[in-house]
Design a protein around this nucleic acid. Sequence first.
DNA 1: TAGATTGTTAATCGATTAACAATC
DNA 2: TAGATTGTTAATCGATTAACAATC
Lengths: 219, 219
Amino acid sequence: MGRDFTDVSMAVVRRLPKYHRYLKDLLDKEVYRISSRELSRLIGFTASQIRQDLNCFGGFGQQGYGYNVEELYNEIGKILGLNKIYSTVIIGAGNLGQAIANYPHFVKYGFKLYGLFDSNPKLIGMKIRDINIYDVDAIESFVEKNQIEIGIICTPKEVAQDIADKLTNAGVKGIWNFAPLDIKVPDDVIVENVHLSESLFILSYLLHEKEALEAAKRK
Amino acid sequence: MGRDFTDVSMAVVRRLPKYHRYLKDLLDKEVYRISSRELSRLIGFTASQIRQDLNCFGGFGQQGYGYNVEELYNEIGKILGLNKIYSTVIIGAGNLGQAIANYPHFVKYGFKLYGLFDSNPKLIGMKIRDINIYDVDAIESFVEKNQIEIGIICTPKEVAQDIADKLTNAGVKGIWNFAPLDIKVPDDVIVENVHLSESLFILSYLLHEKEALEAAKRK
DNA sequence: TAGATTGTTAATCGATTAACAATC
DNA sequence: TAGATTGTTAATCGATTAACAATC
């Protein structure tokens, strides 16, 4: 059980969550059947790409009919590993750490938060959604004892690599990193980055470019 | 002035912030000169790709020498529009909105925050870094009066499209969207999304896939 | 000058799109 | 059965990598 999709390209994988989201929206609207053509109109990928993408994981559709929305939603959820529960900790209990702890999607899709960690004495001992904020020095023993699988780094840049080292030493399998740097980890640990500033800079680039274009046109 | 880079592919553009970040690190370490080969080793792109990317915007290097780190850093900053000041507002003054308001990179690279907006009476009237939290009903007039260019959406999914409509009606040129949906805006407005759950789901996928692979190997 | 390294063209690789036979 | 739409192969497009002449 659990097929091996190692041959699927990351380009395809990065589109999966979007399919999952749109299928959920359709279900909420009580749409139970959809063709690649209709889905294409909603989601903005070509119908051809949608069929190619889905076929990487199996034949979920039916000729002449299309796709069963509920089935496809559930299958993609399984492929994404959302049927499992992952044990997590958040390091850095400031605004960002708290935002994630309270993020509805985070709670809803099987990510169980066991604790938050911070170095600020004012935060240590507090609770977020009934979950304790512990002293950051306790990370390693806590992760080992509770068999934490995912560490979420919401600390400043300066301490992020040190935290990553502690997390991987203690046995986490994956890191969700919000600090603006590329952390180094052993080969068997998976890192997924959210680089907020990169996203912001791209917005800045596009705005700046558009202005330049309009200025050029005005002449 | 301000050259036209419309022919540059988004694949290249999305790498620019990473160059910018690594060049900053080099400058901080007082490295003033670097070849594409050395940069390749640090950043993980091929040397060939680095030279191709940079040449989309001009010949910043010098044969036999490499690139001047400071010059290249400044040039990429300009290309990204970081030499300008953008006027911004944040809608949704919860943890996420506050996290962004306090994000060092945000403040440092020319994004000036004029106000936060929320519907929660407990938050309205408070201040974050000396910046007021206003009633969300005041958005449109505030954006018009202060000529706000960027709106940052940190609200729940349910109200995000409505907020986006108000922002674009009032004249913002770009939206940085953190709500987990694809908002619809007029053609001339630029949207950059940060879909946290998509990032998290990809981490989940990769962990799940790795487990399946290891389980298969054990047999 | 000799060595190093860019800028740039050409070759390769991978991802997207088009087309259509299979089939519900 | 006829119509619709998938699954899948083949064609196209774009992005990455390799190679090397230009030149500092």
